[in-house]
């Protein structure tokens, strides 16, 4: 055993050295984007595999953004599918009815962005009840929100009512999904490791104490809800243009449950965990597809087993080193060096 653990340790240190490298992220981004572009233009990945990768990306956006509320802030939101629905409908209406057919490809990012902004505005409204209530009660509020969105969409004939909305072109390509996924992960990570992110964490730990330590809890909650719902809206827009068909039933409480499962599978308060959870869940569902109905027996069973053996999910409350801010470590190191110098000088 010691031999293999030594090899493992060696690999790990090598991996850490690699991710700590200054240009790791830029190189990773460019390589990833190049790979996705090549895959979609030369089609060396077949369309089915590409579609799975697109769903993996969309699910990563959904999971990371929900983790901001459920993991980092410690609330329990079950309304994430509602925000996704708003993003999907806003973006689809723009591409189907507003944008001229010739410029679809050019204006697609604008449509996605508009979907995100629409969802963010509604997210702002949902943040308001969170000033007063917490935990189970806020869960009820978000549940009600999800139902309202669904029934409102079912009763507007202009967006197709219960029949849904069609006519979107297949604009969601692998490079675009990669871009939006990377953007959402980057922005949410930035938020978590900032002053406002520490505010979000302190609300989870002790809301009254955090208010008394000068944290403006209302401002922090608004920021968290707006950012989280913005990215849910982005994911919704991408989803609509990957499937080319949406109806209100797709965005019910079951969809929210799917996202919740990915969050808790990957582990709360962990960006790396969310990504792992989204990848594992999406790919497992595809691998198990031949089992038919039994898939829906096997997946929950696996979740139960996971909760027994790893109650906090795969990466609960832990973070993969590559997502941690090196800036903090560097600052601390410099500070210690300076402190040592001053004590040496005085001695």
């Amino acid at each position: 055993m010691p031999k293999s653990s030594a090899a493992y340790y060696k690999m790990l240190t090598f991996w850490h050295k690699l991710t700590d490298y200054k240009y790791f992220w830029p190189v990773f981004m460019i390589a990833g984007l190049a790979f996705c572009m090549a895959a979609s233009t030369f089609e060396f990945l077949d369309l089915y595999l590409q579609l799975i990768l697109i769903y993996v990306g969309i699910n990563i956006i959904l999971t990371v953004s929900l983790n901001l509320i459920n993991g980092y802030m410690g609330e329990f939101s079950v309304g994430h599918a509602g925000f996704m629905a708003i993003g999907a409908y806003v973006a689809s209406l723009l591409t189907v009815h507003v944008f001229p057919p010739v410029a679809q490809n050019l204006l697609f990012p604008l449509a996605i962005l508009a979907g995100g902004v629409g969802a963010a505005l509604v997210g702002f409204l949902v943040a308001i009840p969170s000033f007063k209530t917490r935990g189970d009660y806020l869960a009820i509020v978000t549940l009600a929100f999800c139902m309202i969105v669904k029934s409102v969409l079912e009763n507007i004939d202009a967006v197709g009512g219960p029949r849904g909305l069609l006519g979107m072109e297949k604009l969601t390509t692998l490079p675009w999904v990669f871009f939006w996924t990377a953007l959402s992960v980057w922005v949410i990570r930035n938020l978590v490791y900032s002053n406002f992110g520490r505010g979000v964490l302190s609300i989870r730990e002790d809301e009254i104490a955090s208010d008394l330590m000068s944290v403006n809890t209302r401002q922090v909650k608004i920021i968290a809800f707006v950012v989280s719902s913005f990215f849910a809206g982005i994911a919704g827009g991408l989803f609509a243009h990957a499937l080319q068909f949406i109806n209100p039933r797709m965005f019910d409480i079951l969809k929210s449950t799917d996202i919740l499962i990915m969050v808790y599978l990957g582990g709360i308060a962990s960006i790396g965990g969310s990504i792992i959870g989204a990848i594992i869940y999406t790919i497992l569902l595809e691998i198990l597809r031949p089992l038919g109905v039994w898939r829906m027996v096997l997946m929950p069973l696996m979740l139960v087993l996971l909760m027994i053996y790893r109650p906090r999910g795969i990466m609960g409350m832990k973070e993969i080193r590559m997502f941690l801010p090196l800036r903090d470590l560097v600052t601390e190191k410099l500070w210690r060096r300076k402190k040592k110098e001053t004590t040496d000088a005085s001695a």
Binding site: L201, S202, R204, A209, M213, S214, D328
Partner: peptide
């Protein structure tokens, strides 16, 4: 005692700087 138990000692203190941040 009402510390932010799951957070690091450094973060506990940095949270208290919330009101002094300029960005």
């Amino acid at each position: 005692i009402r510390l932010f138990k799951e957070l690091s000692v450094l973060d506990n203190v940095r949270i208290a700087h919330y009101g002094q941040i300029a960005y």
